[in-house]
Structures are given as C-alpha cells and as structure tokens.
C-alpha cells in the first residue's frame, strides 16, 4: 500500500481559505446533528399520529394512514430527496414556487429535514401500530366499557402503554436518522458526508478524513443509543418481560 500519511492534516488550512479542515468537520457535525434532530422531531410527531390512525375503527382514516406509510417506505430516500428538492416546488403557485427556488433561507437544510422527517415518520408509524396492536385486546375494550370515549381510551389507556413498549425499536430508528442524514449531501447541505468528500478532494488525505468522519458518526450513534437506553430504563412497564419489578 502506497499512502502518504499525514495526521496533522486536520490543523492545516484549507486551500484558498483561512479555516482549518477541523473547522469544516466541526461545522459538518453541527449540520448533521441539526438535520437529524429536527427530522426526528417531525418523524416522532407524525409517526405517532399516523401509526395511531392505522389502528382506529374509522376505515377511511386507517386506509389514508396506510397509504402514507406505503408511499414513504417504497421509494428510496435519495429519490424522495430529489423529489422534494427539484419536483415539489413545481407544484406550488407561481410566486411561492419562485420564492422557494430562489429566496427561501436555508433551503437545502429545510428540504432535507422535511424529507428525512417524513421518510422516518413512516417507519415510526409502523412501530407505533405494532405497539398498539401488541396490547391485549381487552385493554381497549375495558377503556370503552368504563365509559371512556374512543379518544379517551387512546389517551389514557392505549397510547401510554404503546409508547413505552416501542422504545427499543425506536432506538434503532433514532440511530438510523443520524445515518440516513448522510444523503443530505446530495442537495448540498454542508453536513458531515459533504465535508468529508470536500476535505478528501481538497487535502487528498482520504483515509484520515474518512476515519475522522466515521468516528464522528460513531459518536452520534453511540450517544443516540445510550440516550434512548436511559429513557427505556426509566419508562419500563412493571410486570412485562424485561420490565421493572
């Protein structure tokens, strides 16, 4: 292997600028975290709503939620990103479309966040539905029997249980959001993967660059995993396998 190692590259200045490569990576890390966390917020809110809608007695609502899930699950994330970025503005009224294309601030960031949020919401919705369906049938019936409305049954009986049950599968979805945020480079969000490619071309120190970026992604996955584990420990349901005593 014929490779010229240079571990000091991170402190060197970028070509034609007064920043160091380290500054690039830190900025990239910040954008990755920003995209991932904002997308996760969207995914949680919409995913819980859509997943719940899939279990309600109203057929049309359940069907609409099903269509939502199938749409976002069966098209690759990168293609969805291009659809939001290049195609969606064409469907807006003329002035709004022009504004989105030309003047919208942080256009790439917002597009990537919405795209990743909706994509992930379909996955969260599937976990949510599985969580609600895993509850004993009698729980919902008991809620209705003591005079709760359907909404109250969901609010006080089904959702508090289901939300706690689905935390382990949500942990891996949360880690996926960080990993999936890498596709945002394709529309020019200055996140980690974008910076990695840019730094590799600029410095020609590919291995050092990718190692550093890989470690940063590792940190994201690890922190996400531990954070969710903490929540999981505190919300375990007594009496279930793996639950608190």
């Amino acid at each position: 292997m014929n490779y010229h190692w240079n571990w000091g590259v991170f402190l060197e200045q970028v070509k034609g600028g007064d920043e160091t490569y380290l500054d690039w990576l830190i900025a990239g890390f910040g954008w990755t975290v920003a995209v991932a966390l904002s997308a996760w917020a969207i995914a949680l809110i919409l995913g819980i709503a859509v997943g719940t809608a899939r279990t309600v007695p109203n057929k049309w609502l359940a069907r609409a939620a099903h269509v939502w899930v199938e749409l976002f699950r069966n098209v690759p994330l990168l293609v969805q990103l291009f659809l939001w970025f290049f195609v969606f503005p064409e469907f807006l009224p003329r002035e709004l479309s022009l504004w989105v294309k030309q003047d919208m601030p942080a256009k790439e960031f917002i597009t990537a966040t919405i795209c990743l949020g909706l994509f992930t919401s379909a996955r969260v919705a599937e976990q949510m539905r599985a969580g609600i369906e895993s509850l004993a049938r009698g729980q919902g019936m008991a809620g209705l029997a003591i005079g709760f409305t359907l909404g109250q049954t969901y609010r006080y009986v089904l959702l508090p249980m289901a939300l706690r049950i689905i935390i382990p599968p949500l942990t891996s979805e949360f880690m996926n959001v960080f990993k999936n945020s890498a596709v945002a480079f394709a529309i020019g969000v200055l996140e980690l993967t974008f910076q990695a490619r840019q730094m590799q071309e600029d410095s020609e120190q590919g291995i050092e660059t990718y190692l550093a970026v890989t470690v940063l992604y590792f940190i994201c996955a690890f922190v996400a995993n531990r954070g969710m584990a903490l929540i999981e420990r505190r919300t375990r349901i007594p009496g279930y396998i793996g639950g608190a005593k």
């Binding site: 890498a182 993967t193 990695a196 990718y210 970026v213 992604y217 996955a221």
Partner: peptide, 11 residues
C-alpha cells in the same frame, strides 16, 4: 451497522 452506508461506499 453503526456507520452510514454512504460512508461505507466512499470508504
């Protein structure tokens, strides 16, 4: 499983 597929492709 803990790094993005995109990074693996670039690697």
């Amino acid at each position: 499983r803990s790094i993005p597929l995109l990074m693996v492709i670039l690697w």
